[in-house]
Nucleic acid binder design. Sequence first.
DNA 1: GATGAATGAGAGTTCATTCAT
DNA 2: TATGAATGAACTCTCATTCAT
Lengths: 210, 210, 210, 210
Amino acid sequence: MGIRERKERERERRRQQIMVAAKRVFTEKGFGKATMEDIAKEAELSPGTLYLYFKNKDELYASLSLRILQYLTIRLEHVNAEPLEDAHDRLTALKEAMFDVYEFDPLILINMFHMQSSETLKNLSPQLLKEIQTLSRNSLQVMAGIFEEGIQRKMFVDKHPTAVADILWSLFSGIVLWETSKKIINDEKNFLKETFDTAFDIFSHGILRH
Amino acid sequence: MGIRERKERERERRRQQIMVAAKRVFTEKGFGKATMEDIAKEAELSPGTLYLYFKNKDELYASLSLRILQYLTIRLEHVNAEPLEDAHDRLTALKEAMFDVYEFDPLILINMFHMQSSETLKNLSPQLLKEIQTLSRNSLQVMAGIFEEGIQRKMFVDKHPTAVADILWSLFSGIVLWETSKKIINDEKNFLKETFDTAFDIFSHGILRH
Amino acid sequence: MGIRERKERERERRRQQIMVAAKRVFTEKGFGKATMEDIAKEAELSPGTLYLYFKNKDELYASLSLRILQYLTIRLEHVNAEPLEDAHDRLTALKEAMFDVYEFDPLILINMFHMQSSETLKNLSPQLLKEIQTLSRNSLQVMAGIFEEGIQRKMFVDKHPTAVADILWSLFSGIVLWETSKKIINDEKNFLKETFDTAFDIFSHGILRH
Amino acid sequence: MGIRERKERERERRRQQIMVAAKRVFTEKGFGKATMEDIAKEAELSPGTLYLYFKNKDELYASLSLRILQYLTIRLEHVNAEPLEDAHDRLTALKEAMFDVYEFDPLILINMFHMQSSETLKNLSPQLLKEIQTLSRNSLQVMAGIFEEGIQRKMFVDKHPTAVADILWSLFSGIVLWETSKKIINDEKNFLKETFDTAFDIFSHGILRH
DNA sequence: GATGAATGAGAGTTCATTCAT
DNA sequence: TATGAATGAACTCTCATTCAT
């Protein structure tokens, strides 16, 4: 391994270290209240160091989104790679992939939403934004592919596959968001796989032909 | 009408005026970047005045959530009040109610999510928090009631009604969130009733017995 | 006096108060080392208040230049207004005007130089920049006018009046700069009117026909 | 040449390399905005290396002044070395020397002014400060010598030679400063030898007896 | 000697909040 | 009740400087 390569790897490790810390702080304090100093402290680094790896606060947060999208993409590709006979099995695999993503970082969607403000967008490097866009389009296309296959096999009801993918993604996001909200506002018990299972049940039942 | 009562009404009018302005500013600038001065300007009031009606910024934003929950509650009660024979019709009425809520304030869920941070919660008066909790429980119970009815009539599949209500609400929230995100990040076309219709189609299809 | 007018006057007073403080701090600490907090403390205001009156640090400093140019303009107009028979007298009046400007704010030229950096220029409002440009052009034109008159009367040697004005201004600036430098570096005695007198003597001698 | 001496020469070469880079960066970015990293990059060295050759940033900049003073000193000695009959020719030679200095580094005076702040002075090693003081005194004395000679020969008007030297130096500095300012603020054409010629014309005319 | 990643103090600036009017 | 100028704590971000390699 060349010295250059090792350095690059070292650099990536640091980036991950910072992102892990950022995720933790963000989860605890919420978006607006988390400061760069909090994150630096959590990562056991100095504030200045954060800026060696991320252009600014917004870009650090956006990178969290990118990270989760990368994870999702990999998981989805696995789903697609397996030669499954049954479209129903595909749905189950899809559900599991999404649940994994949730466990990887429950706050993914909140993160992603933060990027909506056009003020925030201005602070992102075009390159990062592009990557996020590409990955999120990609993921949805993979999902849409699964639905298309099911429709062609006459196993799924005839809906526009892209729309169905959007809806599944929305359902997933919505559950995460809502369960998180409930947890804090109503101080109820945590997000349950159960809710997700039920939701998927209904969804599957809803798109399968009978 | 007593003088006290008139004053109270006047006070309420002002509160609404401020909330309308806040909603507008928030929609335009995004959550983190909207300042109290922006809101004051939009409401044609001075910053100081805002604090005569809202304890602080967090409470002002939380009040927006309360407002939308109140609207939702009223709409749901109307749905329930109508003596509908068919559970399927109920679902349709429910869909329409939720779409109205969306049109009343598309950013409701983002608003509501903002309250998740425990830091924010500390800034809210217990009374306001209580009201929000009560109203949101209420709404979900009304929804759950509709599903329970459907289940008892053997029209809906047998799922826990509360869970189903949660899921519908999540689906709704998720769509709003996701469509808004897409609009900004991918610069795609705006949220469409169509998406919502399709989602509801699938959902209905998913919970109806066949 | 209307309430609006009184407020405007009050506002101007505050601006002056801040500029006086800024001048003092700048003189003592030098440009780069003077902080906004220093200035705020000197003005017995809070840092935030400074930003109610000046957009940013660069603009505050640029305003100091504007102020001195305004003073110079007034003084030059007085010189021109007096019906002097003799071009030589005009020169003397000019000298005195410039010396007054020096006494009003010895650091004028350093201030003005600070604006050279294009980075700094970017931070200035176009309006302020325009005002500074206009005033400095104006002043030089008035000076040039004096020289032109002298040349037409065959009292001065035949040089381009604008160039001569530039040179006089340069001489003046240079002396201020150099004497200030000497004072600090060599710890010598302060700037002397004497130096200025001698310089002006030579200059006058140099442009007068013999 | 001993090994010690060779090392010393090597060290001096590096210092020059850094100073050349510093001059370039400073010219481009302006004083306040140029960073040590910029300079390191321009010199194709690492930031840390700069500190092996210069105690700190202020001292690096002060060294630039020292460098130009050294150049000026050499040039002036040449002027004095030539056995010129005519004091007027001496003046011309002087003018050329100063113009060379300007071409060597137009920003010299700005550099030199930077040292005025007492805060900056604190950061300089006494030795460096001493060298600068000595050299600048020296240069002025050489100039003064030229004037003294002219006065003794009854070619120049009878002014204090040191004061005349100061004034010439001020005139020179002022022109550089002012032409640079004009270029940036008014976006006018660049510093012209012409201005300098005219200025020197007037100056010469002013000190020559008629 | 040279590096350059890391530091951390401190800068400019913002903005929720207060309070004299 | 309404104001809005003033506050000042807290923020993000910069950069001269250090030090382990």
